[in-house]
Amino acid sequence: MSLDSNENSRCGYVAIVGRPNVGKSTLLNKILGQKISITCRKPQTTRHQIMGVKTEEGVQTVYVDTPGLHLNKDKALNRFMNKAAASALDGVDVVVFIIDRTAWTEEEDYVLEKVKRSGIPTILAVNKVDWLEDKESLLPFLQEISAKHDFVEMIPLSAKTGRQVDVLQQKVEALLPESPYIYPEDQLTDRSSRFLSAEIVREKVMRLMGEEVPYQMTVMIERFKVIKGRIHIDATIYVEKQGQKLILIGNKGESIKQIGIDARRDMELLFDNQVVLKLWVKVKSGWSDDERALQSLGYLDQME
């Protein structure tokens, strides 16, 4: 089916929003059946908008994964992430507001305020219900939350296991307008291979390192080139302090070696090709609170 022959199809944009660490990226990956958005138990893993396209049976749903909306605006990077998340509400057809079980914090109120202001039909997705210790608390909680906003639906689900995710997709698709497809049927994301490679490296750093390093670290791909059938990727990991560089490299280079092994494995799965990955670690002091540094590292381009 070509892009021009979809007069009877449905198509639209769906923003996935919520505070940090509620499972937005896990949900997107589960819906797509492929990992394009990195995940980690540490909050604020996602820093950019990431688009994922699901096309099947006459419906094309363009999901937009967003950074977690949060109240901390101390650094330029935090302000960038909030702006990236809030801007995802512009021009979408549906919002999926995802929360973690029955937890409702000030940050949920902050997200809800933006959702209300948008006036866009919103589905509340109550994630991680398989981890809920007191299952009987769910119904009273949903009744309480229904008074806060006129949600189109409230769906308990598990993004990790896929429980009720199909129900969410059906409800989302029913809200999409009749429209031809926006993207080719085989397109999965709007992000480049270089961007996805950088995100994979950053995920492995976040998973392996302690609390400080992941939040003062970013990754740039210096080279992405196919040579004799193999993909050669050179990546630089930037940190803010010399001590962080030493931690990241590890004793006799063991930490950076493990990051490279884990990242290369995911890259080969994603690109279905053999990958030669080289990593470097450099210090760029204060980059996360310097708008010029953020610009040079590719953070502000999409916000112009």
Results as ranks from 00 to 15, higher is better:
Asp4Gln: 14
Ser5Trp: 01
Asn8Leu: 12
Ser9His: 06
Ser9Arg: 01
Gly12Arg: 09
Gly18Trp: 13
Pro20Asn: 10
Lys30Glu: 09
Leu32Thr: 12
Gln34Phe: 02
Ile36Asn: 00
Thr39Ser: 00
Arg41Ala: 09
Gly58Phe: 09
Gln60Ala: 04
Thr61Phe: 03
Tyr63Trp: 08
Thr66Asn: 03
Leu69Ser: 02
Leu69Lys: 12
His70Met: 11
His70Lys: 11
Met81Gly: 11
Asp90Met: 15
Asp93Trp: 04
Thr102Trp: 05
Trp104Met: 02
Leu112Glu: 12
Lys116Ser: 14
Lys116Met: 13
Ser118Glu: 15
Thr122Glu: 15
Leu124Ile: 08
Asn127Arg: 01
Asp130Arg: 06
Trp131Arg: 08
Glu133Thr: 13
Glu136Arg: 14
Ser137Gly: 10
Ser137Cys: 10
Ala147Trp: 01
Lys148Gln: 03
Lys148Phe: 03
His149Glu: 04
Phe151Ala: 00
Met154Lys: 02
Ser158Ala: 07
Lys160Ser: 11
Lys160Asp: 13
Thr161Phe: 04
Arg163Cys: 02
Val165Asp: 00
Val172Lys: 07
Val172Asn: 00
Ala174Gln: 09
Leu175His: 05
Ser179Asp: 07
Tyr181Arg: 03
Tyr183Gln: 01
Asp186Met: 03
Asp186Lys: 09
Ser192Asp: 02
Ser197Met: 10
Ala198Gln: 12
Lys204Thr: 14
Met206Tyr: 07
Arg207Leu: 15
Met209Phe: 03
Glu212Pro: 03
Tyr215His: 12
Phe224Glu: 05
Lys228Arg: 09
Ile233His: 10
Asp234Met: 03
Thr236Phe: 08
Lys241Gly: 05
Gly243Arg: 08
Leu246Ser: 11
Gly250Asn: 01
Lys252Val: 10
Ser255Tyr: 04
Ser255Phe: 00
Ile256Ala: 02
Gly260Met: 02
Gly260Pro: 01
Ile261Asp: 01
Asp262Ala: 11
Leu270Gly: 07
Phe271Gln: 09
Leu277Lys: 07
Val281Lys: 01
Gly286Val: 00
Ser288Ala: 09
Ser288His: 05
Ser288Gly: 00
Ala293Cys: 00
Leu300Gly: 06
Met303Arg: 09
Glu304Val: 10
